[in-house]
């Protein structure tokens, strides 16, 4: 038994796949898988929506309020006025199955939300921004549009489903990359929902006032303030860019022959 100096061949223990090839295969493959999952989930949520009728939704969420809501005083004038405005707009939605409740959230971020059970939340930030009742009416009409299309449950359902996916993939990298992709795909859907809600809202405004003057004045102000905007950002945002929305609304008004000039109702607070 004697020693003979020899060397093993180099590279036997290393696969010769280039890391970039490996990265490409994985990213493309996983993206496809995630997109497929998203499509299936969206479909499942649609089925669930079909299975849960509005009556059941209303019964379930009758007295429900989100926990982090910072309410204003119950005798705040804006609360009563906004509630009245919502009720008036709702009368133009013939067979609305909801009895809407309005709450004001004390937050400086201008926003409005449609939540399960017919709950509409507007922020004080939004009430400070609007300059006429017509502007506010359109925002509220837009939220009513979400109720009509049941988008509020849709986004809730998708949120639950997405967090389930997160739970399964937690601690792994995909959570980030895959969820970003899923999120982007969902935003695509959500922008279409926003456009549909806009159209319904505008119709309510027209029925209520007989014209659509100042309906989208709020967006015009935002658009002017935010002159230059990033192209990609528009795709990443859940709501369409202000200028896209304005264009869409102007086109709709022109198509329907709704007058864009009329007597504007001032705010009564």
């Amino acid at each position: 038994m004697k020693y003979v100096a020899k060397k093993p061949e180099d590279g036997i223990n290393v696969s010769d796949t280039h890391p970039l090839v490996e990265a490409g295969t994985l990213v493309v493959g996983l993206s496809l898988i995630f997109l497929a999952i998203v499509v299936v989930l969206v479909f499942l949520v649609e089925i669930a929506l079909y299975l849960v009728p509005v009556e059941k939704e209303v019964a379930l969420f009758e007295d429900w309020l989100p926990e982090d809501l910072v309410t204003v005083a119950p005798n705040d004038e804006r609360l009563g006025r906004t509630q009245l405005l919502v009720d008036r707009l709702a009368t133009h939605w013939g067979d609305s199955p909801y009895s809407f409740r309005v709450e004001i959230n004390d937050s400086s971020v201008a926003n409005a939300m449609a939540l399960p059970g017919g709950l509409i939340i507007v922020t004080t930030g939004l009430l400070d921004e609007v300059e006429s009742e017509n502007e506010l009416a359109f925002v509220l009409g837009h939220e009513l549009g979400h109720f009509r299309n049941r988008d509020h449950l849709r986004s809730l359902g998708r949120g639950i489903v997405l967090s389930l996916v997160i739970a399964v993939t937690t601690g792994r990298d995909v959570s980030n990359i895959g969820l970003n992709i899923a999120d982007l795909a969902l935003r695509g859907f959500s922008r279409r929902q926003e456009a549909a809600a806009d159209e319904f809202g505008l119709e309510l405004v027209y029925t209520n006032y007989g014209h659509v003057d100042e309906a989208w004045r709020l967006f015009e102000r935002w658009d002017e303030r935010d002159g230059e905007s990033l192209g990609v950002a528009s795709y990443l945002s859940t709501h369409p860019q202000a200028d896209d929305r304005i264009e869409n609304l102007e086109r709709l008004a022109a198509e329907q022959g709704w007058p864009t000039a009329g007597r504007v109702t001032p705010l009564r607070w």
Partner: peptide
């Protein structure tokens, strides 16, 4: 009977299980 010896040889692989 071992006539010659050459040195250490190694073999390795890293595997992951799927979700």
């Amino acid at each position: 009977r071992i006539v010659e010896f050459y040195g250490v040889v190694t073999g390795n692989t890293v595997r992951a299980k799927h979700i």
